[in-house]
């Protein structure tokens, strides 16, 4: 089984999974917070925030990657701060690839979580309130558990989207084997080489398998959690 792929190809698979995991790990809490603000907040500029969150879905990924370069590049406003204060460089690094993936998958995660949050019965939150639960307590004891199906689906869909992200990663983090060369980039690179079709085919099979597993897992977990919260 292991010799189905070469060690380099296994590295690309592991790197892809790592990048996607990191993107979801950092992106999801932010997505939950954003979804909460969008679902519950009543403030000026909510429509603007909504549009901003959805931008990566409709923009060419290359544009997102370039904007990330402007912002997080070593001379960019955020990138310079990160370098000066923490000594962190994002451009052309694995973390940078995760950032690019996370930004591209963000709207998907926000949408799934938001849909779920909007389905939470506010009456239950009122009940929790009358029983003495403050806002943060209420969120973690009632709202979030009831929205869990959406959060899990958001995580899996986001993870799957990260596995396939190409444009933003190659623009912002480049195509460095072992560092930023995720599966789609590796497939692209293989196809650029003479006789690379076999490599591309094997990596594509792995991609298909991961995507299918992700979708099935999302469906199964979603159903299980919905049953748990009595829906």
């Amino acid at each position: 089984m292991l010799d189905f792929l070469t060690p380099d190809e296994w590295d690309a698979v592991a790197l892809t999974l790592g990048v996607a995991a990191r993107a979801v790990l950092f992106g999801l809490p932010l997505a939950v917070l954003t979804a909460l603000v969008l679902a519950r907040g009543r403030f000026f500029g909510r429509a603007g925030l909504d549009a901003l969150v959805h931008l990566p879905m409709v923009l060419p990924p290359g544009v997102v990657g370039w904007l990330l370069l402007l912002l997080f590049g070593v001379r960019g406003p955020v990138g310079a701060l990160l370098r000066d204060w923490f000594g962190v460089r994002l451009v052309f690094t694995t973390t940078g690839a995760a950032l690019a993936c996370g930004v591209m998958a963000f709207p998907l995660m926000v949408r799934a979580v938001r849909l779920s949050l909007e389905g939470v019965d506010r009456g239950l939150e009122q009940a929790a309130r009358s029983l003495g639960a403050g806002p943060v307590d209420r969120f973690f004891s009632v709202t979030l558990p009831l929205a869990a199906p959406g959060v899990v689906v958001g995580a899996i869909v986001g993870f799957a989207a990260c596995l396939g992200e190409f444009g933003a990663v190659i623009t912002f983090a480049a195509n460095i084997p072992g560092q930023t060369q995720t599966l789609p980039l590796a497939i692209y690179a293989a196809l650029q080489m003479p006789n690379g079709e076999a490599v591309a085919a094997r990596l594509s099979l792995v991609s298909i398998g991961l995507a299918l597993a992700g979708l099935l897992a999302a469906d199964w977990l979603g159903r299980r959690l919905r049953a748990r919260v009595g829906q």
């Binding site: 009456g123 239950l124 009940a127 558990p145 009831l146 748990r228 919260v229 009595g230 829906q231």
Partner: peptide
């Protein structure tokens, strides 16, 4: 106590 008991389903 509400008309619809509002028990936490989870």
């Amino acid at each position: 106590v509400f008309q619809d008991a509002r028990l936490f389903p989870h």
